[in-house]
């Protein structure tokens, strides 16, 4: 089974107090550390697990600068066979343009399955995967938490809201957007990543992809980004742990949930 997996490099922001940059349209990113998008980690792992089980090749693709090749080397270290980076140059990107760029590359590859993460940690859009499937004319499913190939189709699990999974069958070739928790991504060591540097990594320019002006025009524009207002939200209970505990107990008792 030949698998293509799309990955993105995103900033690590969990512990960071983000600030807005000079343009007002993005956050300051110069001091941020970059990692593989969490959802994509699961997608890479799933691609390699399937490839280990069913044979075939796994190809990792990203869009970005040379720095972004790091996520490809990680994917190669996990077990992908080759990698492709699409260099967007100065192109303005949104979910739509990204899906077009990816489609432009993937359409010429041989594959049975395309995997993406459900969404990216930075823009939280969650649209690239399914748009890409449509451009390629593939059957598709979003928020997938289980894949079991059987011949030329797969039984998949889609995570629904409210603690429910939907089981369905989907024929190959297909695109699945992978949800976290589908597997346990393995650790790849620094040494492993360096060794993976020997595997094939191809770089493509946008011009190589035969895309139209329309394909390369974003359909949405970020007008501004802003931090949530500080004032809204919880009333902070001050004091040492003991005072806090007393106050919590008072609230619980007042609400009648604790005697």
């Amino acid at each position: 089974m030949n698998i293509v997996v799309c990955v993105k490099r995103v900033p690590l922001t969990q512990e960071v107090d983000l600030e807005i940059d000079g343009t007002g349209k993005d956050v300051k990113k110069d001091a941020l550390a970059y990692v593989v998008n969490d959802w994509d980690n699961y997608a890479i792992e799933e691609a390699v697990l399937l490839q280990e089980k069913f044979g075939g090749t796994a190809t990792a693709i990203t869009i970005g600068t040379e720095d972004d090749e790091e996520v490809l080397r990680r994917a190669l270290a996990v077990g992908a066979d080759r990698a492709i980076r699409i260099d967007p140059g100065d192109l303005e990107l949104d979910g739509f343009v990204i899906s077009k760029l990816l489609a432009g590359v993937i359409k010429d590859l041989e594959y049975d399955l395309v995997l993406t993460g459900v969404q990216a940690d930075d823009d939280n859009c969650g649209m690239v995967g399914i748009m890409l499937a449509e451009h390629l004319g593939l059957s598709h499913a979003a928020v997938v938490t289980g894949v079991e190939p059987e011949g030329d189709e797969a039984t998949i699990k889609v995570e629904l809201e409210g603690g429910m999974d939907e089981v369905s069958k989907i024929p190959f070739p297909a695109l699945l957007s992978i949800q976290t928790g589908i597997n346990e991504p393995r650790y790849v060591s620094i040494m492993g990543i360096r060794k993976a540097g020997k595997k094939e990594l191809k770089v493509l320019e946008v011009a190589d992809l035969n895309l139209t002006e329309d394909d390369l025009t974003p359909r949405t524009v970020v007008e501004e980004v802003f931090l949530p207002p500080e004032t809204e939200g919880a009333e902070i209970i001050e004091g040492d742990a003991s005072t806090v505990a007393e106050e919590i107990i008072r609230i619980l008792t007042e609400k009648g949930v604790m005697v």
Partner: peptide
């Protein structure tokens, strides 16, 4: 991953 990316085990910014 935090050690590598942020230089500390907590993932706190350098």
């Amino acid at each position: 991953m935090h050690f590598e990316k942020t230089g500390n085990p907590f993932g706190k910014p350098a």
